[in-house]
Amino acid sequence: MTANYQLNHLRELESESIFVLREVAAQFENPVLLFSGGKDSILMVHLAVKAFYPAKIPFTLLHVDTGHNFQETIDYRDQLVERIGAKLIVGSVQEAIDSGMVREETGYNATRNYLQTAVLLDSLEKGKYDAALGGGRRDEEKARAKERFFSHRDEFGQWDPKNQRPELWNLFNGRKQYGEHFRVFPISNWTELDVWQYLAVEEVELPNLYFAHERKVFRRDGMLLAESEHLPRRPEEKLERMTVRCRTIGDITCTGVWESSAATLEDIIAEVSMARQTERGGRADDKRSETAMEDRKKQGYF
């Protein structure tokens, strides 16, 4: 009798994530969903829509905008927000630079990625958000492998890896002191391949950047980077026209692109199943040191 009562791994992951999203809506007063325009946050929005159907999602979307985006990301974001009728807040790194809250890096490897943390914390404080939903996954990076679904942060937004609450069964403890908040990661247990398979099964529309397209690129430190006015090139870095796609989408200054001919989700799944490099292998922000992610998380990065 029980033979039929078995979910496949994608449906089980989906159910787990929906459970977590509903717990957040129930346990917190003012949750916000961090939306970057990347596939993981697109997945998060899709799951949130499912979790509260036919009601609207009970989360505001927060985009921490470095000002160095792929234009496709912004267009996609605006269409999505309109379609699901959600409220969008944009935390601007440019404004934070202009107001002197943060200082911009200079040089060839300058990126605004690190400035995001200050703007994120500032936006959370201004909006009085008590929980921030993020699309982080444990398979992404070794510091994330130890992350909880409900990750407690002190009033400075810091992560203390030695002082995380044990998480058992499906009991999530979201109790906190005034001024503290939580980061919540509903898709903790998904891998890159799971995400792609699920997006394909669900036929979720994605930004074109994820599919193979022609673009002017150049090589740096073994990575391919897209040409952009925000990304100064060294004299020896020559532009080439290549067929590429993004495996992750972040700030344009640190998101590597990959040579690829994958034009459909099926192609991408085939490519990801065969991939011999982790997706964050194309992220310059992780390459700064062996513990780059751990250090950033301690400071309040999501």
């Binding site: 492998a145 890896p161 030695k162």
Partner: peptide, 27 residues
């Protein structure tokens, strides 16, 4: 399976770490 800096320095595991792999049959 080494995780955090603190753990590598001390050669210990301080916490539960989650890892993932898949075969055609199971994840």
């Amino acid at each position: 399976t080494d995780g955090l800096k603190a753990e590598r320095e001390q050669g210990i595991t301080i916490d539960v770490a989650y890892r993932y792999f898949a075969t055609p049959k199971r994840k």
